[in-house]
Write a protein that binds this DNA or RNA. Structure first.
Length: 398
DNA sequence: TCTGGGGTCCTAGGACCC
DNA sequence: TCTGGGGTCCTAGGACCC
């Protein structure tokens, strides 16, 4: 028996919690910048048609009187940790899938439904946040059940949801088949369009399509997977510790970048942030990827795998800049990203004498300085006016 | 309407090896 | 002259999730 727990309008609810004067108002988190999107919004804002991932410009037209806030992601992470503390009071088998969302294995409880209600009460008591809980025999059904438990928004107002929805054994298909196929985890806009061509509207319609037809339309993996889901078959277990596969940092600029120098300086900033997070996690990686989104939204990636795993901003930036050398930024670059994958645990490193002359030693020193004096105490060196040294063709201290 | 930032997984082709 | 089969690793792109 698996439960899926999901906080209602998480980011926006935290903002209302921390500033009670916002209660009852349409609150929209994100969407402040020129090119922003809505990260989360309260149900009062959803009444006007606003939803997450919506371009900010559109949200402002739909709901001009809303309170727009920049996100405070450190605060949300803090609340997320408290949320997980509540969860772990029930079971160690907790799989977080977002800051505000987790699967819990409730297999050890005789009465999972009452546990679901109890979790809801506990979260409300400890954090002051409303959660919805779905309980079912599998992950994806539990997720659909928690969705079904959410408050219902209409232009006229917001009706409180059920809070907890339990899909009883034997009633799976009766619950599942009337749902729109788009509700399935794994059916996004592209797959939805393809399924529409089959005349598939509901999950029940999908279940009636022969597997072979699905496989030829969607590929082996997705075709078989969706066929299984449509018959409520999902053997995936709750995994409490999943290894991180990649670490990346990207930024969309209010004004397009056109010059290589600007790209390289930004890449160094992004690489510095990625390196700091890798070192904090004790990870290093061999594959460096840059991502470039042009003015027309066309997006490319370039990656290179190096022999030795890297975890310093300088080493990551070295590969990133060489990849950027093959890209023409003159059409205008709206987004730049730097990522590291192919990860492994970094070798335990100490700031020893022989290391002090190396970039690893320097980075470890930077980490310590930032720990003591704050993240802003040390920034990445600028590429402008860099000094070349023998044996260090590309890089040197500013 | 003009599209974030952090991720995961899948596909497909090519290089390379035995 | 006419080229197998199996496997791994790398690169690029795309779909999807919150």
């Amino acid at each position: 028996v698996i439960a899926h727990v999901d906080v209602n309008a998480f980011y926006a609810s935290v903002e209302v919690l921390d500033d009670p004067s916002l209660a009852g108002k349409p609150v929209i988190v994100g969407g402040l910048g020129a090119r922003g999107v809505v990260a989360a919004c309260t149900y009062e804002a959803r009444r006007f048609g606003v939803h997450s991932a919506m371009p900010a410009a559109r949200a402002r037209r739909l709901c001009p009187h809303a309170v727009f806030l920049a996100g405070r992601y450190d605060r949300y992470a803090e609340m997320s940790a408290l949320l997980h503390e509540v969860f772990r009071g029930y079971t160690a088998a907790v799989e977080g899938i977002a800051l505000d969302e987790a699967f819990l294995d409730l297999g050890c409880f005789a009465d999972p439904a009452s546990v679901a209600w109890s979790i809801r009460r506990d979260v409300k008591g400890a954090l002051g946040l409303d959660v919805c809980v779905g309980v079912a025999a599998s992950k994806f059904l539990a997720k659909l059940a928690s969705e079904a438990a959410k408050p219902v928004v209409s232009p006229g107002g917001v009706a409180p949801g059920q809070g907890v929805v339990v899909v009883e054994p034997g009633s799976e298909l009766a619950f599942l088949h009337p749902l729109p196929v788009r509700a399935l985890w794994g059916v996004g806009p592209a797959t939805h369009r393809r399924l529409e061509r089959f005349g598939v509207v509901t999950v029940g319609d999908l279940a009636a399509v022969p597997v072979d037809s699905l496989v030829s339309a969607l590929g082996t993996s997705l075709g078989r997977h969706l066929h299984e889901l449509s018959w409520a078959r999902d053997a995936r277990q709750v995994e409490s510790s999943r290894a991180v596969k990649s670490v990346s940092h990207e930024e969309t600029y209010a004004v397009d970048l056109h010059r290589h120098d600007d790209l390289c300086n930004e890449a160094l900033r992004l690489a510095d942030a990625v390196g700091a997070r890798l070192r904090k996690a004790g990870l290093a990686g061999r594959t460096v990827t840059v991502k470039v989104r042009f003015h027309d939204f066309a997006t490319i990636t370039r990656s290179q795998t190096v022999a030795e795993a890297v975890d310093t901003g300088v080493a990551i930036a070295r590969t990133a800049t060489s990849l950027l050398a093959g890209i023409d930024p003159s059409p205008g670059v709206r987004l730049l990203g730097v990522g590291v994958s192919n990860l492994s645990e970094a070798a335990l490193r100490q700031l020893t004498l022989e290391e002090t002359g190396s970039w690893s030693g320097a980075s470890a020193a930077v980490d310590r300085i930032r720990e003591r004096f704050g993240a802003g105490a040390v920034g990445p060196a600028s590429l402008v006016g860099r000094v070349k040294r023998p044996g260090d063709a590309q890089w040197g201290p500013d």
